[in-house]
Computed example of a mutant assay.
Amino acid sequence: MREIVLDTETTGFDPEQGDRIVEIGCVELYNHMPTGETYHVYINPERPMPEEAFKVHGLGDDFLRDKPKFAEVGQSFLDFVRDAKLVIHNASFDMKFLNAELRWMNLPQLPMSQALDTLEIARKRFPGAPASLDALCRRFAIDNSSRTLHGALLDSEILAEVYLELIGGRQPDFGLATVDHSTGANGEVWRPRPRPNPLPSRISEKEAAAHAEFVAKLGDNPLWNRK
């Protein structure tokens, strides 16, 4: 099952009043596991960036001036998400902006049924409790210290971790589900790709030394030393 965790940053709150998307960030999940594939683009909103939005996003007119317009990236965005479920925090907000931009380009719009709203999931799971992304990071002990400004890709990466906690962790079905050999746009069988960068070791030098000392006591050919 392919899912896309998605976030947008905008100049304001209402596309019908002239507000535009300035950033899109997406993180791909397959069977609830990150694949390492992302989609990220800054967009020239073709209007001045309001001071309030600049304070939130840190994206000013000078930075966005040479970025592509949505008309130049809309099709590539659709090509990336395809028919995957879109995991979004407060989905109605992002979907109204995406569909407004797509409508202005005469491109197919995204049905709301394609979106999965983590804000609704959090409110149902924790009634009455704060359900912002920051509040959920505190609840699940997810490090969001780098989130000093709102950024679409960073927020998508954090939301992916929050989403997996909301549905029960990285293996909500305990690995018992059958493999879904979904096919891509050209009909090939989709398979998860290796991580572009290996995860760093979580073993401390003290733990590694203790393990080496333990293995040394197991004889001439312990399992851990076999190639």
Rank of each mutant, 00 (worst) to 15 (best):
R82A: 15
S92T: 14
K67W: 00
D66N: 13
A100T: 03
R138E: 15
R139Q: 12
F126T: 08
S132A: 00
F77D: 02
A115P: 12
A115C: 15
A71L: 03
L59T: 00
F80P: 10
I158A: 07
R139K: 14
D83W: 13
E72V: 05
Q114R: 12
V56I: 15
L110Y: 07
I142Y: 04
L136R: 06
L133H: 00
F93K: 08
A135N: 07
K67A: 02
R147T: 10
V73R: 00
K124H: 12
A152E: 10
E101H: 11
A100K: 13
H150K: 08
F63C: 02
D143A: 06
F70L: 03
N106I: 01
K67V: 04
P127D: 01
A115N: 11
F93N: 05
R139A: 05
Q109P: 02
N99V: 00
D62Q: 09
L153H: 06
F140A: 08
R139C: 06
H57W: 07
F140Y: 15
V162K: 04
R138H: 12
A91W: 02
R123E: 07
V162Q: 02
F97V: 04
D117V: 02
L107A: 11
L59G: 03
F126Q: 05
L119D: 05
D61V: 11
R139H: 11
A71G: 14
L159D: 02
N106G: 05
H89G: 01
D62E: 15
M112Y: 14
G128I: 07
A115D: 05
R125P: 02
E157P: 00
L107W: 08
G151W: 05
P111A: 08
R123T: 06
F140R: 05
G58H: 05
M95P: 04
S132V: 09
F77L: 10
L153E: 11
R139T: 07
M105A: 04
R123I: 02
K85R: 15
R103P: 01
P127N: 01
F140S: 05
K67Y: 06
T118C: 04
A129K: 14
S92A: 15
L59D: 07
M95G: 08
L110H: 09
D117H: 07
I158F: 06
L149A: 03
